[in-house]
Design a protein around this nucleic acid. Structure first.
Lengths: 219, 219
DNA sequence: ACCTGAACACCGTTCAAGT
DNA sequence: ACCTGAACACCGTTCAAGT
């Protein structure tokens, strides 16, 4: 019965973990990222210590939620890969992603900045990029997207729009739609347009992420 | 001599204020926004209490610095208004602004989100928008920018790029240049292109800012 | 094994006491 | 008038004691 008892134990622990994730997701959404861990633990019906047993740090609790959300996006994107119109598929995904950012504002606030240093988030990020790369490649083959952009360029535009609509909540979602239209205009091939400057950023460029250090303007 | 003595007092206080701002700017740049107020006060050579006499809150200290930076941008933009090529003037300003965001990352992190609720920042923001509006109008009159975008649309794109390069530090500044090229492509008029959806966001739409509340996805 | 909550460390903010 | 630093409140994190 040793295995059985272990499984029972695990079930308890697993249930606590889920409860914590659910409580945290809900409270972060309702009141932003600075709700206290004490309150989260209380809402989940466990002690503070249990929270820190599952997520050694508040940041890692947030990361776990963000990873969940990103996985959903990747799944949606993989589905879009089946589409017969790759251009529309790409722009549809961008719409979806921005919609997600609109509805989970607090969480997306966390993705930026230092959180990229987080191991789990980086893994999820890599998966997302891989999918996006394929989607962009097909859209380019179909002539719906200019050839000189890379998936990283597209991801940056997407993230830019996602971030900015957080700060312009009062004009969104109308403005978000317009920003997406502008992204589309930027990505649409145009004969005779000047090519993008610089080197196409690749996935590998991102791999060497590491924590971002603040910096100063030169004196 | 009462006035004289008051002025002497004020000079002391003013000097302390400047020292605090300088110390804070430097330390935020070097080590990010979470340096402690105690350390800032120490570096400025004053007591903690003096810091809070000048800036009732750490947030307001940050806001004061941000306002300084925004004023610089506005000044630059006003200068650009004199240019004989309004289109180039606009794109030049966007380049400058993104460069600023690149070199003062920590500070721009603060501009977003809740900080828009800050009174001083909103005033500076309004000035910036007024200037940008004039710049966009002239660029449109010169045929360098599509007619269906508003200054708010442009500001949002600018802010989007500024935000996103913070998170992609390792591919910047090359990627930043490319993002600016894409913004330019999006703004350049193109015959036969579909117009932007929705209503053109105006300055007044932003006026009713207020603190942003976090929100949830519908169940 | 896993859980709990008292205790700790840290940091923004206040305020009584100085000059 | 302005400054100072001890004291307070708050919150993330740890850990000895329970089951």
């Amino acid at each position: 019965m040793e295995e059985g008892s272990t499984r029972t134990r695990r079930a308890d622990a697993e249930r606590n973990r889920r409860r914590l994730l659910d409580a945290a997701t809900e409270m972060f959404c309702e009141r932003g990222l600075d709700v206290g861990v004490a309150e989260i633990a209380q809402r989940a019906g466990v002690g503070r210590g249990t929270l820190f047993r599952n997520f050694p740090t508040k940041e890692q609790l947030i990361a776990a939620i963000v990873v969940d959300r990103m996985s959903e996006s990747v799944a949606r994107g993989r589905a879009a890969l089946e589409s017969s119109d790759p251009g529309e598929a790409l722009f549809w995904l961008l719409d979806q992603a921005v919609g997600l950012a609109l509805s989970d504002r607090a969480l997306f606030a966390a993705i930026g900045d230092e959180y990229l240093a987080n191991e789990e988030i980086r893994t999820a990020h890599a998966e997302l990029l891989e999918m996006l790369e394929e989607l962009v490649r097909r859209a380019q083959a179909a002539g719906a997207v200019r050839d000189d952009v890379s998936a990283v360029d597209v991801l940056m535009m997407l993230k830019g729009v996602s971030e900015v609509i957080k700060s312009f909540q009062h004009v969104a979602p109308d403005a978000a739609m317009r920003q997406l239209d502008l992204v589309r205009a930027a990505l649409t091939p145009r004969p005779g347009a000047p090519p993008l400057r610089g080197r196409r950023p690749t996935v590998d460029d991102l791999a060497e992420a590491g924590p971002v250090s603040p910096n100063c303007r030169p004196a």
